[in-house]
Amino acid sequence: MGNIFGRLEGSEPSAGVVLTGSHCDAIPLAGMYDGTLGVIGAIEALAALQQAGFKPVRPIEVMMFTSEEPTRFALSCSGSRAMAGALTPAELEAKTDAGGLHFLQASGAGYAGAPPASVANQVGYGAASTGEMLEAVRVAPEAVAYFVELHIEQGPFLEREGTDIGVVTAIAAPAALEVHFTGDGGHAGGQLMPIRNDAGLAGAELALAVERHVLGTGSGDTVGTTGTFEVSPGAINSVPREARLAIDIRDTDGPRRDSVVEGVLASAADIAHRRKVRVASRIINQDPPATCHASIVEAVAASAKQLGLSTKHMVSRAYHDSLFMARVAPTGMIFIPCRNGWSHRPDEFSSPEDIANGVNVLALTLAHLSGGSWPKVEL
Rank of each mutant, 00 (worst) to 15 (best):
A45C: 11
M32P: 12
L46P: 02
A26C: 15
L37D: 08
I43A: 13
S22W: 10
A52R: 00
L49R: 05
M63R: 11
D34L: 09
I40L: 10
G38W: 04
I43H: 06
F65T: 10
V17A: 02
G31H: 03
E44M: 06
P59K: 00
G35Q: 07
M64R: 15
A47D: 08
G31I: 04
M64Q: 15
T36F: 11
V17T: 03
V18W: 01
Q50P: 03
V39M: 10
L37N: 12
T66V: 10
T36V: 15
S67H: 12
G21E: 08
A45R: 04
G35D: 09
Q50N: 05
M63L: 15
A52K: 00
D25M: 14
A47F: 05
M32L: 11
T36A: 09
V62D: 03
G35P: 09
S22V: 14
F54G: 00
H23A: 13
D25K: 13
C24G: 14
T20W: 09
L49E: 02
P59T: 02
M63N: 10
A42H: 06
M32Y: 12
M32N: 10
F65K: 10
S67I: 14
I27C: 08
Q51F: 05
A52C: 02
Q50T: 08
I60C: 03
H23K: 10
S67V: 15
E68H: 10
A47W: 03
F54W: 01
I60P: 01
I60S: 01
M64A: 15
A26N: 13
Q50M: 02
V39I: 14
P28Q: 03
R58E: 05
R58W: 01
G53V: 03
K55M: 05
C24D: 15
E44T: 07
G38E: 08
G53K: 01
C24A: 12
H23C: 13
G35Y: 02
K55T: 07
K55R: 07
Q51Y: 07
A42G: 11
A52T: 00
G41P: 08
I27D: 03
S22E: 13
V62H: 05
A45H: 08
M64P: 11
I60N: 03
D25G: 12
P28V: 07
I60F: 01
K55L: 04
E68Y: 10
G41E: 04
G53P: 03
P59Y: 00
I40S: 09
G53T: 05
A30T: 02
G21F: 05
L37Y: 09
V18D: 00
P56G: 02
P59G: 03
S67A: 11
G35S: 09
S67P: 14
L49V: 03
G21C: 13
M64S: 14
S67E: 13
I40R: 11
A52P: 00
L19T: 06
L46K: 01
L49I: 06
M64F: 15
I60R: 01
A26G: 11
G35K: 06
S67T: 15
S22H: 14
I27F: 06
G53I: 08
A26T: 15
G35H: 04
F65V: 13
T66S: 13
Q50R: 06
V17C: 04
Y33E: 09
S22R: 07
H23I: 12
A52L: 00
P28G: 07
L29P: 10
A45V: 09
E61G: 07
E61L: 06
